[in-house]
Amino acid sequence: MNKFVIALSLFLVGCQLGGTTPTPGPQFYATGTQGLDVRVNTLSNNQLFMCEEGEVLLDLHNLGTSDIAQGIYTLTIEDQILKPVGKTKKQGSYSLEGRSAVNPVGGYTQLGFRFKTNNLPAQLETYQTPFIFNACYPYATSANIPVCIDPTRDPQAARSCKTTPVSGKGGQGAPVLVTLVEPLMVVQDNAVLPTFIVHIANAGKGRVVSTDSLGFACGNGGGTPSSKVRVMAQLQDEQLKCLPEMVDLRQGETKVTCMSNTYFGAAEGRANQGTFTTPLTVQLEYGYVTTLFYPFTITRLAHQEDCSSTQETYTPSTVSTSTDRGINWPPRS
């Protein structure tokens, strides 16, 4: 009896082991309207005394779905009031992975900036000076909007879907999003030529620039950065013709018309697929600028006249940005 029970148990356990069912990946959905999120870490200190060293720690989090391969940042400060110390640079670069099924939270990094306050003009007891952080990065939106291709003209035929506008207002994991897609089935002969009116808007808190204007946007060289978004659309492996190809979002929501060259519902060929749902893939390419404003308040101590004679001299460093702070903390007096 005992042997039978043991054999049965082994048999049941064996049945549960093995098998060829693959483990599915986590269900990841590209939603949201954020790209790079820049926040001031709570360890930062913007209330300084004259001649004191302070530090600003910024948390950079890529909350969108596009990878940031070559993002650049610039700092705008009053050089006569705040002097960078140590490895602190006013320009740098960073790279952050976007959210995906294998990385649902997105890439994260920290940037540290250390400063020393200079003398305040004699008549001032306190002074507020700006600290402006500009992050400029190329970004992309990949929207998969389910649309209905309906070449059927039979009024009584059951349909698997209806040709109605599809909203994308939940976002596609990027600050520039497709807000609405209006499908139009243009009837020609016995078939339809699908056309889509794609509505695009900037829902993020930053500014859209062209990808080739990112340098200008972060203060490199002269000129005014342009603000164009490249629009591409694909339907069933066919690249659609979109007009205009580049749109300017400075005036708000903009529409683009994307047309297919395939006659769906034709009697022969691959286009004869009846009424069906398929994803319209809209790819938007652009640059984005996220700006953080973090003013310093500098206070003169009572009877303080000027800083000590030994001042650190700012030397531009070629060390790239990393999360390693490489400084002495807390500062030695």
């Binding site: 269900q27 959905y29 590209a30 990949s142 998969n144 698997s160 994803p279 893939t281």
Partner: peptide, 14 residues
Amino acid sequence: EKRIDKYQPLILAT
């Protein structure tokens, strides 16, 4: 490969 998160067709049998 097509970067599609989910596809939800309504299958019809006629």
